[in-house]
Simulated scan of single mutants.
Amino acid sequence: MGSLIGELEERQAAARSRVAELDREIAALTVRLEAERNRLERLTVTRETLDELAAEGVSVGAVAPASAEVESVGGGRVVGVQTVAVWREGMTSTDLPPVYRDIVDVIDDAPEPVQAKRIVPRIGLPAQTSKIEGTRSKLKRLVERGWLDEPTPGLFTASARRAAAARPPG
């Protein structure tokens, strides 16, 4: 009888091992799936934006690549691209393109962290998935450039550095 129990224990241990391995594979695939979903969302929003611009008569044939430190120089205007400068001390939301300025102003006025879906109606856009995703993309860009913080995924606040710089000394 001891050999039957021993055999069951070995099979149970082997099954546990396979379950643990499958759990690790699922976790890895879940991360990959989420990354691909995010990529698909960004591409979908980009396509919708390009379609909107084309419908408005804006040429979308060639779009300059965005750089982390792109700044307008010489007053030139690039059609179809809005540059968002990296925040530096002394800059205010007026240094941003209008839609980004509106987003930062809404966040600055909010008493607590805000989700993209709560910002969209406050900046005058319809609460459609494409508008929410486009706004989320802008929020992420503002975080990357130091204008906002994202303390919890999906919740945005004014940048602590920017808020500290705006406080009067003393």
Score class of each variant (00 low, 15 high):
1 M>A: 13
2 G>Y: 09
2 G>I: 06
3 S>W: 14
3 S>N: 13
3 S>K: 15
4 L>P: 07
5 I>M: 11
7 E>Y: 14
8 L>K: 13
8 L>C: 11
10 E>M: 04
10 E>R: 08
11 R>W: 06
12 Q>C: 12
12 Q>W: 09
13 A>G: 07
14 A>K: 12
15 A>R: 09
15 A>G: 03
17 S>I: 04
19 V>R: 14
22 L>W: 14
25 E>P: 07
26 I>V: 14
27 A>Q: 10
27 A>L: 07
28 A>I: 10
30 T>M: 02
30 T>P: 00
31 V>Y: 10
33 L>S: 03
33 L>A: 12
33 L>T: 11
33 L>V: 15
34 E>G: 09
34 E>H: 13
35 A>R: 08
35 A>F: 11
35 A>S: 13
36 E>D: 06
38 N>S: 11
38 N>L: 06
39 R>W: 01
42 R>S: 04
47 R>W: 11
50 L>G: 00
51 D>E: 12
52 E>Y: 13
53 L>V: 05
53 L>I: 10
54 A>Q: 13
56 E>G: 11
56 E>R: 15
56 E>D: 15
58 V>R: 05
58 V>F: 11
59 S>E: 15
63 V>M: 06
63 V>F: 14
65 P>R: 06
66 A>V: 12
66 A>I: 15
66 A>W: 08
67 S>T: 11
67 S>R: 13
68 A>I: 07
70 V>W: 02
70 V>R: 11
70 V>P: 06
70 V>C: 14
70 V>L: 12
71 E>A: 13
71 E>L: 11
72 S>C: 13
73 V>N: 12
74 G>L: 00
75 G>Y: 02
75 G>E: 00
78 V>W: 08
78 V>T: 15
78 V>D: 10
79 V>N: 08
79 V>W: 03
80 G>A: 03
83 T>L: 12
87 W>S: 00
89 E>Q: 13
90 G>C: 04
91 M>K: 03
92 T>E: 07
93 S>N: 01
94 T>C: 03
96 L>M: 06
98 P>I: 11
99 V>P: 02
99 V>Q: 07
100 Y>I: 13
102 D>M: 13
104 V>T: 01
104 V>Q: 00
107 I>D: 00
110 A>P: 02
111 P>A: 04
112 E>S: 14
114 V>Y: 00
116 A>H: 02
117 K>I: 15
119 I>K: 00
121 P>S: 07
121 P>A: 04
121 P>W: 00
122 R>S: 01
122 R>D: 05
122 R>Y: 03
123 I>L: 03
123 I>N: 01
125 L>C: 06
125 L>F: 05
125 L>I: 03
128 Q>E: 14
131 K>Q: 15
131 K>M: 08
132 I>V: 05
132 I>L: 03
135 T>R: 02
136 R>W: 06
136 R>Y: 11
137 S>I: 06
140 K>D: 14
140 K>E: 09
142 L>E: 03
144 E>T: 03
146 G>I: 01
146 G>R: 02
147 W>C: 05
148 L>I: 10
148 L>Y: 02
149 D>W: 03
150 E>F: 04
151 P>K: 05
152 T>A: 06
152 T>R: 14
154 G>N: 01
156 F>C: 02
159 S>T: 08
160 A>S: 13
161 R>C: 09
163 A>T: 15
164 A>P: 09
165 A>N: 01
166 A>S: 07
167 R>M: 05
168 P>I: 04
169 P>G: 08
